[in-house]
Simulated scan of single mutants.
Amino acid sequence: MKFLFIAPRFHNNQYYWVKSLTDHNHEVRFWVWRKEPLENYSALTPSLIPRSSFGLPKILSCYREMKALDPDIVVVRDPRSFLFVFVSMLIARMQKRKVFIYSQTPLYQTMSWVKKITVRLMLRFFGSLWITPIIGDMRYPKFHPRAFYVPFAIEPQAQEKSPVRRPIRIISVGKIYQERKNHLLLLEAFYDSLKKSDIRLTIIGALSGNSPEYFNKMRVYIKKYDLEQTVEIKTNLEHNEVLREYAKHDLFVLPSSNEPLAYSPLEAMGAGLPVICSDTNGFRWYVKDGENGYIFKSEDVSDLKDKVSLAIPRLQEMSKNSLNSVKQFYTPKSFYEKFMEAVQSV
């Protein structure tokens, strides 16, 4: 089959989706509005959507290119948020193609009547079905009968991690210029441990040249509290370099708040790391609290400290659980089976 993905950019969380489809001999193309540094194009190189001098998509060019590609299914990233995606979806429907709408919204949830009507209208007039990588709270109904859960995927490491040795190495991966990643909260939570215990912290993330303010605040904090010997910050690493870093660490912590669904925690689990994230991060639905990680109350330094204290004595046990979770639910094979289940439904 031929698949065309349309999104603002090629996020690395799409890498194994694309690779899995191409490994099964499907043809995949990816249209993006922009390209960013550090994106992993080893499975596929995305194409920029033609745009006018006014910054709008060239509708006729998009129409012709889509017609030439002749995809069986067009997968669009939430058209409620991006005008160019909505335009692309209209073109796909004009050409009578099947459209999958992809968003990071929980499959099982309660929705306001306004959102319900919006979803129903979009699926009725434009989309064949809706896919999401967030399962949500199964005490509630699916937000639409034609909505499907399709998980993010990662290739798990072949072997279990070796026994934990001192110093304990903790890693956090997230854009350093975004305040919602809460790196300062992380430093505050680990201040006592970093000063008194045998613990090391590594923070990895992209750093925008135009947005160094938050990064500078982190550097000031580290210097003020004399943490230079216990905290290391690594910026703008290539994706494969980041993947290698997980294997050098024992525990992953991402304190971000109000994040639809972070991908770096799944990469960490694939390397056998227990994961700690907040209760306002969509990744909480991938964490079995107390088994492969912990969920802490968002923005609560004290609760984050408590969860780290609970995890450290159980790192070896929880490491095995993390790896087993990935092998059971989040491999490229898991993605492919769920995705093709959705495809076959139409």
Rank of each mutant, 00 (worst) to 15 (best):
K288P: 00
F30W: 08
V301W: 08
E188R: 15
N12G: 12
P255C: 12
P8E: 15
H11E: 10
S172L: 13
S278L: 12
S208V: 00
S325A: 11
W285V: 07
L123M: 09
Q316A: 14
P71V: 03
V242L: 05
A206H: 13
E245W: 11
D226Q: 14
A268K: 08
H239C: 03
E179K: 14
Q344G: 05
S53L: 13
H26F: 14
Q95C: 03
R314S: 04
D78Y: 12
A7E: 08
T235N: 08
L38Q: 02
K333I: 07
R180A: 02
Q157C: 10
Y177T: 00
M1Q: 05
P37C: 05
S264V: 09
I135V: 13
D192M: 04
S325K: 12
L194H: 08
F143N: 07
M1Y: 11
Q178K: 06
D72H: 12
P57T: 08
Y63L: 07
R244V: 03
V287I: 15
A68N: 07
S52A: 08
V114C: 05
G290W: 02
L60D: 11
R219Y: 09
L251D: 01
C277D: 00
I134M: 07
K234Y: 07
S88I: 01
Y221R: 05
V275F: 08
F125Y: 14
K297H: 12
F283S: 01
R120K: 13
K234M: 14
E337H: 14
P106R: 00
L261D: 05
F3T: 01
F252A: 02
A153F: 01
P46H: 07
I233K: 02
N216Y: 07
A92S: 15
R200Q: 14
Q316Y: 14
I170F: 02
R93A: 06
L69V: 06
S257D: 04
R80E: 05
G174K: 11
D250E: 06
F86L: 11
K333F: 10
Y177S: 09
I233W: 09
P167Y: 13
F252Q: 01
F86A: 12
I233V: 14
A342L: 09
K217F: 05
